[in-house]
């Protein structure tokens, strides 16, 4: 789980081109959208592709992403659940 969270942080930084952000800047439960990292709806779509491409998880409705992408913590939990299921 810890490895997954670190991996997710790295992937988020790379996928979203967050040049000035390092993995240490992203706390596990920091909000990714709005006040936190400041991601927006286009980033959410980018993350949906990442879930599909790297973890084989498909989201049909972008609205589902809102809860999943709340933080690195929620993303990791969701991926672990889906993989385990």
């Amino acid at each position: 789980m810890t490895d997954l969270k670190l991996e997710l942080k790295e992937k988020i930084i790379e996928q979203l081109n967050l040049e000035d952000v390092s993995v240490d800047d992203i706390g596990d439960s920091d909000p990714l959208f709005g006040e936190g990292l400041g991601l927006d709806s286009i980033d959410a779509l980018e993350l949906i592709v990442m879930l599909d491409k790297d973890y084989g998880i498909k989201l049909a409705d972008p609205k589902e992403g809102r809860q999943i992408f709340e933080s690195v913590e929620t993303m990791a939990t969701y991926i672990t659940q889906q993989k385990g299921a």
Binding site: Q15, I42, L45, E46, D52, K53
Partner: peptide, 10 residues
Amino acid sequence: EQFLTPTRFI
């Protein structure tokens, strides 16, 4: 046509 992301399209 798989795993495409929106940013470049936009």
